[in-house]
């Protein structure tokens, strides 16, 4: 059944002209996201949209996985984004296993210059990952980025401050929120709310702060969805 589905999906992709994306292996994000990413990871040569208060952390986790190939991590933002969210900080990146020597920071004066710079970076074979902090990205803009990424071959991450219901050419669209856990490593709720593969849903992950690896975490907000521990099972049995 799964094989037939995969074969059908491959045929659809070929018809859509997106077969090129499959030639390169996707960015593997581990078993935690396997349910949401049937192809085994995030497609390279494609644009992915991340929004929400913890988008930077998820973007870096993806970038870390995608930088297993040579190439630069090109981070593009404009002055407004810099003021609102701060600069990606090399000491913090280095502490999480990302090599700051591979970071290229593009600091555009305004949104228009930023959009052009992002497109330039996306079309370059030198960029393994392009992070673009574009406040506005309509269908036309995202389509252009998608085409540029297909030329360049890198992975595009569109960082948005808010969830934008407007249509987009992004292959996947995520909402990334941190979970208020008391102690321990940060936990994220990753909601894939739009995907070209058709699979949608949400998972909760624990982020390893030294490697940026994503581990499956039992859901906290909804105890019923969590794997029932021995104590709980006993209660259920009694009830």
């Amino acid at each position: 059944m799964d094989d037939r589905l995969a074969a059908l999906r491959a045929r659809i992709r070929a018809l859509e002209g997106r077969g090129a994306g499959l030639a390169v292996p996707p960015v593997a994000l581990g078993p935690a996201l396997a349910r949401l990413l049937p192809e085994g990871g995030l497609a390279r040569k494609a644009l992915h949209e991340l929004a929400g208060p913890a988008a930077t952390l998820f973007a870096l986790a993806i970038a870390k996985a995608a930088l297993d190939r040579p190439g630069l991590l090109v981070w593009c933002l404009d002055e407004a984004g810099l003021r609102a969210r701060g600069i990606p900080w090399p000491p913090g990146l280095a502490a999480r296993g990302l090599d700051p020597d591979r970071l290229l920071l593009v600091r555009a004066p305004d949104a228009a210059a930023l959009a052009r710079a992002v497109e330039e970076a996306s079309a370059s074979p030198a960029a393994a990952v392009v992070v673009a902090e574009l406040a506005r990205a309509d269908l036309d803009r995202t389509r252009r980025l998608q085409l540029a990424l297909e030329r360049g071959g890198g992975l595009g991450l569109l960082l948005r401050p808010a969830r934008d219901p407007a249509p987009s050419a992004a292959t996947t669209r995520w909402w990334v929120a941190p979970l208020p856990v008391g102690e321990g490593p940060p936990r994220l709720r990753l909601e894939l709310w739009r995907a070209k593969s058709g699979v949608e849903g949400a998972v909760e992950v624990r982020v390893d702060e030294r490697t940026l690896a994503l581990h499956p975490a039992p859901a906290l907000a909804d105890p019923a969805a969590a794997a029932p521990g021995p104590a709980q099972r006993r209660v259920l049995a009694r009830g």
Partner: peptide, 25 residues
Amino acid sequence: ADPGAAAVLIDRLAARLGAERVLRP
């Protein structure tokens, strides 16, 4: 992803935005 491609990208971005806006740490 050869160094030549990186140089080309850096030059193009620097020509667009100015060298002081295309940075490495």
